[in-house]
Nucleic acid binder design. Structure first.
Length: 418
DNA sequence: TCTGGGGTCCTAGGACCC
DNA sequence: TCTGGGGTCCTAGGACCC
């Protein structure tokens, strides 16, 4: 018998901040998105006083945050990534079959664990992660991935661990579990199911017209239905190379000129091509976009365009040039640009790359990229960069409340008073 | 009057996730 | 003044082939 366990960190970003700031434990904390744009993580103390709506704009919350003395942080992804790695390393001790699902979640598979006391094992996982990393987690165990997600939600509402492996206990929970909270059922699908009179997970599980589900929710929805029935359709997946990647940002202030957009795009292209080289891949096509702000009452423009390479590449300079060429085609003057990005598509492993017909060798600045990556790794990001990235970078993201890189930078270690 | 059948590949768009 | 970033999977429909 196979069992699936979902471990999910509680208010992960907030918890990471609290590990290094004991004085805010037990206090309401909020972490903001890039650009300090909106709130994306809340502690339970913050939720208790009415915060918690994902992506609510920060400027609309400011008064209430002040009133309740909520501690606010800009997001510090360097710190969160490192804390995430510590959590995952700890979880790996409990089973080799582990899938890192996101920065703060992992699926664990237990096979041949039938004689285990899962209640006890779950508590052990919790206390081990807490003592090794300082991060509190919830643990849900059941017989499929979808059910373990539901068990995890139950765990959060209760003591932190929830086991449901017997048919009767599962049905008991599903009868009170809203359809919209099921993993994989989003807003649209929930509406479709509601019109069929399906409101709870149990009603979905026992709905007999499978062909109709297939038609309305496609294969994805059908698999969720089977998983609710205890039939495992989704398995633990091992990490694979990204099939698409990219880099994009909202600007700290509006951008009007093509020159500034070129700088920003050069920056995104540099970042995206580095990601590509890290996974030893090349891409055959690139697309860029430039947007105005949909929230502002100004003339709107959503430009996008694409470039195909004749041979796969991961060369920063080539990718910057291509991005600029596309910008020349899609740029329209007179708009107030707020966001832009570079996306790399049709990615294949580098060793499966093909020369084009008229090329005798790959002209890809391979050595140059290698050396630049090495220097930037040793001396910090952006030590060496293309001049196309510019120096003023007025479009740069705003982050007014950022914590230190406690775990990854010698200069930013936690100071303990003598 | 009456215009094939079967297949593959690619892409855009929709939906969902954290 | 002020609204995130990075992904995945599925399907329909068009282009193209013999």
């Amino acid at each position: 018998m196979k069992y699936f366990c979902l471990v999910d960190c509680n208010s992960f970003y907030c918890s990471c901040e609290r590990v290094w700031r004991p004085e805010i434990r037990g206090k309401p904390v909020i972490v903001l998105s890039n650009n300090d744009g909106c709130a994306i993580a809340f502690t339970k103390e913050a939720k208790a006083i009415g915060f918690g709506q994902m992506c609510e704009p920060y400027f609309q919350l400011k008064d209430r945050i002040k009133k309740y003395k909520v501690k606010v942080f800009s997001s510090n992804y360097t710190l969160y990534d490192n804390m995430s790695k510590r959590v995952m390393d700890t979880l790996r001790q409990f089973t080799p079959d582990l899938e890192i699902y996101s920065v703060d979640e992992a699926f664990l598979q237990f096979e041949g664990f039938d004689h285990y006391d899962f209640e006890k094992y779950g508590k052990e996982i919790r206390s081990e992660v807490l003592s090794a990393t300082g991060i509190p987690v919830g643990v849900g165990i059941s017989t499929t991935k979808v059910l373990s997600k539901i068990a995890n939600k139950m765990a959060k509402k209760n003591s932190g661990v929830w086991i449901m492996t017997k048919a009767a206990e599962i049905d008991q929970v599903l009868k009170n579990f809203p359809i919209k909270d099921i993993w994989g059922i989003g807003h649209r699908s929930a509406i479709k199911l509601n019109t069929l009179g399906i409101k709870t997970a149990y009603e979905f599980k026992t709905f007999k017209n499978e062909a109709l589900i297939q038609k309305l929710l496609t294969k994805t929805g059908r698999e969720i239905q089977e998983e609710l029935r205890g039939v495992s359709c989704l398995s633990i997946e091992s990490p694979e190379d990204k099939k698409n990647t990219g880099s994009s940002r909202s600007f700290g202030q509006p951008v009007y000129s093509k020159g500034e957009l070129k700088e920003a795009l050069a920056h995104f292209a540099t970042h995206a091509s580095l990601k590509l080289r890290r996974q030893k891949s090349v891409c055959f096509s690139l697309s860029i976009f430039i947007h105005t702000s949909p929230f502002k009452e100004v003339p709107q423009y959503f430009g996008e365009g694409r470039y195909n390479f004749s041979t796969g590449t991961s060369d920063t300079l080539k990718i910057i040039r291509a991005a600029h060429e596309v910008l020349d085609e899609i740029y329209r003057p007179g708009f107030e640009y707020k966001k832009a990005g570079v996306l790399l598509n049709h990615i294949v492993p580098k060793n499966e790359n093909q020369l084009d017909l008229f090329q005798s060798h790959l002209d890809d600045n391979e050595k140059l990229n290698e050396v630049v990556d090495l220097i930037n790794k040793k001396y910090g990001d952006h030590t060496i960069k293309s001049a196309a990235c510019g120096v003023s970078q007025d479009w740069k993201t705003v982050a007014n409340y950022k914590s230190q890189k406690y775990t990854t930078n010698w200069k930013e270690l936690l100071k303990v008073k003598p």
